[in-house]
Each structure stands twice: as C-alpha cells, then as structure tokens.
Nucleic acid binder design. Sequence first.
DNA 1: ATGGACCTTCCCATCATGGCAAGGTCAAGC
DNA 2: GCTTGACCTTGCCATGATGGGAAGGTCCAT
Lengths: 144, 144
Amino acid sequence: MNIGQAAENTGVSAKMIRYYESIALLPDPKRSASGYREYGDVDLHRLRFVRRSRDFGFSMEQIAKLLKLWEQKRPSHDVKEIALTHVAELDEKIQHLTELRNTLKHLADCCHGDHRPECPILQSLSGKPQTATRSQAIPPTTSR
Amino acid sequence: MNIGQAAENTGVSAKMIRYYESIALLPDPKRSASGYREYGDVDLHRLRFVRRSRDFGFSMEQIAKLLKLWEQKRPSHDVKEIALTHVAELDEKIQHLTELRNTLKHLADCCHGDHRPECPILQSLSGKPQTATRSQAIPPTTSR
DNA sequence: ATGGACCTTCCCATCATGGCAAGGTCAAGC
DNA sequence: GCTTGACCTTGCCATGATGGGAAGGTCCAT
C-alpha cells in the first residue's frame, strides 16, 4: 500500500507520515523498486496508534515512549505512569484556563456593554487597581 | 528609557518588544540620536497592557483590537464582545481538555499498573474495541 | 504512448519566542 | 584620552506540527 492509501486509511496525512518518519517516530518503511514507500497492516496499525495518541493530546515525546512500550509489550506500569503524568498536565492546563475564563467572565459581566467608554475589562488590562476583586481578577503573571 | 529597562519594567522581553513593533502591534518608538529606542510612560503602560492581555490568553489579533479600543477610548460594547468571544473559546477548549482528561483518567484507573503486559490504555490507543465503554473511551477524531 | 494520478525530495511559511553574531554606543574607571 | 564591559542595533537561524508547492520520476488505464 502506498503512502496516499495509508494516509486515507489512518487519518494521518502523507505529509505527516513522512515527517514522523524523518524524526524517527516511525521506522523507515519498505520501499518499492522505484522508491515508493510501502505500508502493510503493521504499519497501518502503528499509524492509527499515533493518530489516536495525538487525539489524546500526548506530546510527540510521550507518543514515542508509548509506542515503544506498545511494540515491546512492556509492563503496563510504565504506560500508566505516562498516562497519569498526562492527566496531571491536563488538570493543570484546565485549571489555568478555568481561572482565566472566570476572571474574564467576571469582568465582562461587570462591563455594562453599552456606548459608555468606561470598561472594567480595559481597566483591568491596563493594570488600574480598580475593583475590590482585583487581587483575584489579575491573572497569574505566568512566565510565558 | 532604553529597551532593556522597558523590558525589565514591563515583563515583556526586548526581543518581543521589537517583534510587536515589527508586526505593527506597537507603534514605532522614538529613537535617540544614535538609534536607540526610547520609551516613556505611555509606552510602558501600553506594554503592560499587552503583557496582561497575553496573560489572559488573548490572541495577537484580539490584543490588537483591544489595544485599539483602549487607546481610542471606544465604547465598552466592542470590548465586551471580544472578551465574551474569548470566554466562549476558553469554554470550548476547557471542555475538550476535560473530556480527554476524563477518558484518560478512566483508562488509567482501569489499568492495574503492575508488571503485566496487558494494559487498557495501550489497547484503547491501538484501537482494539475492548471494553464496554469504548464508544466513550475513544476521543473524538478531531480534525486537528 | 500519452495523460493523469500518484509518488519522491526539497524548500518555504506559519506563530511567538529565544539564541547568536557582528558591529555600534555609552558610561565608568584608569 | 583610552579601555572595558554592558548595552543597543539589525539580521539570520531554530523551534514544533503542519500545510503548500515546485520539479521531477512512476504507474496504470486508455
């Protein structure tokens, strides 16, 4: 099976398949006499594994580990650890976004939203200590 | 005030200040006779506004709009709309991440996490329809 | 044998950010 | 005055995951 077919079959674009190969996430596939990549069932299976892992939001690095564990049929302990690490990452990200969201929503709710130029949102962004909720309204100065 | 001082003062790196200037998010600053950028109170205020907006997770595009509205002291209506749009974006992202997180947590909880090679996480990633919860366990194939 | 659909490699672009290099400037100390 | 070190300038390169496109080779059906 050529790369186009494999792409259609697994939901991973041909471009990405080549990319994953180039960063050694995937092994070099067999080639036809004329140099075409050829994929078999095992390769397709692996590609789907990678796509699903991406869907789960795993990083490339994590996927590489998971893939290795999967192929080597290694103990589930290691896999669980990676998964739980990712869960913790997700929790952190979710919490951060939720805080931002609530702060912003609060500001928007306080904004009369009419033609008047005063706006608590802009005031908060400009750093004017204004409302009593300021200490909560200013998001953490994450070093991003 | 030179760029280094401005950077230290506002939490926006010198590199980023120049970048924001290059994409016209910020106006070209005054220059000293020798070509050094010079920043005053107004500029610092603007830089802090941008940094805070980034902290809130606004996109560059949104920040450009907010900045314009802020400087022109335009009606709060427009600002509120941008903020609420961003809140909606955050809500969506939070929901997506939460779903991923819960699915993954569920899989990890089902994983005995010992030396045995069987692992529901890997099985789910490899696409094996295995548990009754599969239809919920497979994350949406988001076209990412 | 010709045309179209596919494949190959290579380069470029994204976006926000950092790093590095070569060269100019400024201020402090000798 | 001259040196030195800290700062500034511009410009290029790199990131990570992805897409776009060009130039050229291959395969298959008509």
